[in-house]
């Protein structure tokens, strides 16, 4: 991501992408600019924590202890505190995940309409169990609570892309798209 982002929306950039690099620097170039923009929108540094963790995850794919420590340093917080906050939110990955993080909604709306079968088919297609990353590092399939699109079941989110009305028969096509 090289283009400049308006300061008003720097705190709201989707964080799960396929092109993650666990060793990416925190933060340089356009990301440093985004970091400064984020800080400019709040009366204190602590408030920038969620957006900055998001940005770190966008770059590195997950929040390693080293990442957490670095973010803590940048925001003048303790690493213990940052870990506590990060572990509260389900979208922060505290373990590495596959290149494609496949999240299947099993909320009541999707469950009533057959989400279970979609999950089963995705696990079969990726050869994994829930939460496990495939051997080639490509896929991690997880069940997630309501994604807030209950009228369009089953909802599947792959990294930062949402698929609505996914039926078991759509799984094959979805997997092709990811390859």
């Amino acid at each position: 991501m090289s283009e400049s982002i308006h300061p008003a929306v720097c705190s709201a950039q989707p964080s799960q992408r396929a092109d993650k690099n666990p060793d990416a620097p925190l933060f340089e170039g356009a990301y440093k600019e985004r970091f400064d923009h984020i800080l400019s929108r709040y009366p204190n540094k602590r408030a920038a924590l969620l957006p900055v963790l998001n940005m770190a995850q966008e770059l590195r794919g997950w929040l390693s202890p080293a990442t957490i420590t670095r973010v803590a340093e940048l925001l003048e917080l303790t690493p213990d505190y940052v870990r506590s906050v990060a572990s509260f939110y389900t979208m922060f990955q505290l373990r590495p995940v596959g290149r494609h993080l496949i999240q299947v909604c099993i909320g009541i709306g999707c469950d009533l309409c057959g989400a279970e079968e979609v999950v089963e088919d995705l696990l079969e297609a990726t050869g994994t169990r829930i939460g496990e990353t495939s051997r080639d590092g490509k896929y991690t399939v997880v069940e997630v609570e309501c994604l807030g699109a209950c009228g369009f079941p089953t909802v599947v989110q792959v990294n930062d892309k949402v698929y609505e009305n996914v039926k078991p028969e759509d799984v094959e096509g979805l997997m092709k798209e990811l390859d």
Binding site: T78, P79, D80, Y81, R83, S84, S87
Partner: peptide, 19 residues
């Protein structure tokens, strides 16, 4: 020295330090 924190949430919560 706030080294102790609640990690995780809900019924999975526990007390821990960073490292």
């Amino acid at each position: 020295e706030p080294v102790l924190q609640v990690i995780q949430r809900g019924h999975k919560g526990y007390i821990d330090t960073m490292t």
